[in-house]
Design a protein around this nucleic acid. Structure first.
Length: 230
DNA sequence: GTAGGGTTAATC
DNA sequence: GATTAACCCTAC
């Protein structure tokens, strides 16, 4: 199969044997760049990234090269990225995704690519495009689990804007993130189920108690789902 | 653009 | 197998 045109190689990247590579070539979506990417480094380490329609830029390479010079633990990588970006590098989805997918630090192996069923309209509208799908599935856009930091940001946003102004929240708090307004809404719903109603048997992402308390209070202040007028 | 039901993969 | 979290679908 022909390599999708997503590679990018600046002199800096070449120097570091750094390149972008599609993880699931056979499952690349119609948009070209869809699903998982793996950023491989010459020294054998790799960073799996999950982002949508994103092309690597020079600044990304610079960021990675700096990281190679001064390796970071996962714990303080995020802060380091914030500082580096504040110091002149552009904000990019890299900032939001890199720290969560540092493969070296992962306890288990790479998570599988999430899939969704294709709608029948795909084949109707895109009949002329040769299908690259094995079994009626294409990859999902993201596969990223929310981090405590993202949740904190979401909580801040809800504190400011209340519930239901997800686009506004996206613009102000998740401008460069892969999270969409719908993702924010869905996450808030999950948080309400997990913490406000307190009916879940287990919770996958443990949050700091003060943050949980804030979520509960916001849940009480802004009922969700909202009461709809009939 | 949002709400809320539905689907899927990850996790327990 | 059941539950959770992320994501999808679509009426409004």
């Amino acid at each position: 199969m022909e390599q999708p045109e997503i590679s990018f190689c600046s002199p800096e990247m070449e120097q570091a044997s750094l390149f972008w590579m599609p993880m699931q070539q056979a499952e690349q979506g119609l948009d070209g760049i869809l699903g998982d990417l793996e950023l491989s480094l010459g020294n054998g380490t790799a960073y799996g990234l999950q982002m949508e329609n994103y092309r690597a830029r020079d600044d990304d390479a610079v960021l990675i090269l700096k990281l190679l010079e001064e390796p970071r633990d996962e714990a303080d990588l995020d802060e380091w990225l914030s500082v580096s970006i504040a110091g002149g590098l552009h904000p990019s989805p890299l900032r939001d995704t890199l720290c969560h997918y540092q493969m070296e630090c992962r306890k288990s192996g790479r998570r599988g690519v999430r899939k969704r069923r294709t709608s029948p309209w795909d084949t109707l509208f895109f009949r002329e495009i040769p299908p690259q799908r094995g079994d009626g599935y294409i990859t999902r856009r993201n596969n990223s689990r929310w981090t405590a930091k993202e949740v904190k940001l979401l909580v801040q946003g809800v504190s400011k804007f209340g519930v239901g102004r997800w686009s506004q929240l996206k613009k102000n708090y998740f401008k460069t993130s892969v999270r969409t307004a719908v993702n924010l809404k869905d996450k808030w719903r999950n948080l309400m189920r997990a913490y406000k109603d307190n009916v879940q048997k287990y919770i996958l992402l443990e949050l700091d108690p003060p943050l949980v308390e804030q979520i509960r209070k916001l849940g009480a202040k802004h009922p969700y789902p909202k009461q709809r007028h009939s």
